[in-house]
Design a protein around this nucleic acid. Structure first.
Lengths: 142, 142
DNA sequence: GTGATAAAGTTAGCTTGCTAAGTAAAATTC
DNA sequence: GAATTTTACTTAGCAAGCTAACTTTATCAC
């Protein structure tokens, strides 16, 4: 009985936290001429570009048209460029421009700022517990 | 140093959990001819309809055009109807139709199913800790 | 009473998300 | 080798989100 109320509270907090973070982060990224969602796509490219759109879909866990449209927009803004694979004409490989590479540091900074705000005054022990519980919930869903 | 890694893991889990839940819930609500986001709007009306759109904006913590468009769609699907306030012609009040009232139970069921999945095998003690930590994070943001 | 300001909602346009349907290329089957 | 199936991406259209600008109504200041 009481578990349901507690569970409800958790669920609602989760919703509130994620939508608030998304909204704030979106506002913050605007200074860099980026939209929320694009940062993760770029983050994957910073690890190593030249990957295919399908790889991006898998990494980001979203559908191909979403990647197509995001990649288009990022290309338009000069952060990336696309080239057809030389062996397989169906495949598009995505590369960072210099402009795109230069975004890594400011984006990382904004990410860290938001993270610090979220976790402010939660002790290291509590963080470990929280990570464990989050992982458990994550596993429940996938 | 290590806190940063733990914090990063927490943040990433949060993102994964929320987007996965949103995707699954959206899929689930489709059976009821609802879109994710509309459920919360209806949930507020189930508590008591006849409220203004501004009240909905405040409750849902979103912008007025979002509510306008959601309300339009829900009205089109026959779940709600709108009436101008009698004292102030600027104000629209939102009411549930019978069809809209009947959605409460199935929506509540879907909500509970998803919650049960998310929190499966997390003990009551852990749930209390989790709730507390979520509330702390939430407070950090607002 | 008039003009200025504020409030409530709307329209237009953008984004990341999605589904459905389509095109082109590659792989598989016969 | 031809036909069929699968794969990678694209287009079109929908949604909830947002911002900017707008219209109408109410309130306030003078």
């Amino acid at each position: 009985m009481n578990d349901n109320k507690v569970g409800c509270d958790i669920r609602e907090s989760l919703d509130k936290i994620s939508s608030k973070m998304r909204r704030d982060y979106s506002e913050s990224l605007r200074e860099l001429n980026l939209h929320v969602g694009q940062d993760k796509l770029l983050a994957r490219l910073w690890l190593g570009d030249g990957i295919t759109q399908m790889q991006l879909c898998e990494h980001l866990k979203c559908e191909p048209p979403t990647v197509t449209n995001m990649v288009k927009s990022l290309e338009l803004n000069g952060f990336i460029y696309r080239k057809r694979d030389e062996q397989d004409a169906r495949v598009m490989r995505i590369y960072l421009t210099d402009k795109g590479k230069q975004l890594e540091e400011p984006v990382d900074l904004k990410w860290k700022q938001q993270q610090a705000k979220l976790l402010h005054s939660i002790s290291p022990e509590e963080l470990l517990i929280l990570r464990e519980l989050m992982k458990r919930m994550e596993r429940n869903l996938f």
